[in-house]
Amino acid sequence: MTQSRRSDGACGLELSAVSAVFAAGGGCTGVSLRVAAGECVAVVGASGCGKTTLLRIAAGLLAPQTGKAQCIDAAGQPLPLASARISVCFQDPRLLPWRRALGNVELPLALAGEARAERRSRASAALATVGLQEAAAKRPHQLSGGMRMRVGLARAMVTDPQILLMDEPCGALDAISRRDINLELARLRQQTGTTMLLVTHAIDEAVMLADRVAVMGGSPGTLWEVIEIPPSLHESDAANGPAFARLCVTIHEALVRVRQGAP
């Protein structure tokens, strides 16, 4: 399913049999995963099964030992990873403590050499999308955990990324903040059609946001199965319905099977 409404060429992601195994243990091996332009794929699995490693390979922060990570255009043709605008939301928001919220959101634009006025207005707009325009002048230590995460999300979105990679963006948040951010992400997706790869522990989050859920397991981790999510479950009140709950149970059972080693 391609939802992209981008004018500047939507971009997907293709991981072909990538491996990165560490001497200290962990990592992933032989993972092939294709995220079409405009699609959102969630990766679930137990701790230490290589989810974050997979994300770092996709972000170009880690070169795979074998296999290949590349982008694909809307027609499925391969492009080098460096040619796409990729943003990453890390597990912790990673804000610069000496910069105000607005300055943190401006950072990617400043590094790209944007003019001051331009980056200020774009950063303000990005802060407004995550509902934080009032906190623009605050420094990270003056913000709550949920607000910091939202500043991180605004920083990821300010460059209008073609691909957004998220590593447990809500891992450290309380249930209400998590729900807020999830709704925010769902809305952003509706608006921009950004391609997303979401690493998460929360099954409901995966079902709510993703078109497909990839289940990983083992150490070093491999991809065990991919579960399709019907688009009807992304509607605003679907999360309270029985179909949503059934799918969550299906994914949970898959995770249990993976842990017992029987796909």
Partner: peptide
């Protein structure tokens, strides 16, 4: 902070920018 350092790598910061905006502060 190694996390911030990784962020600057991901944002493709040039050595001078890394100095001025991360290392010095």
């Amino acid at each position: 902070d190694p996390g911030l350092s990784e962020l600057f790598s991901q944002l493709r910061a040039k050595p001078g920018q890394r100095w001025r905006l991360l290392a010095l502060p």
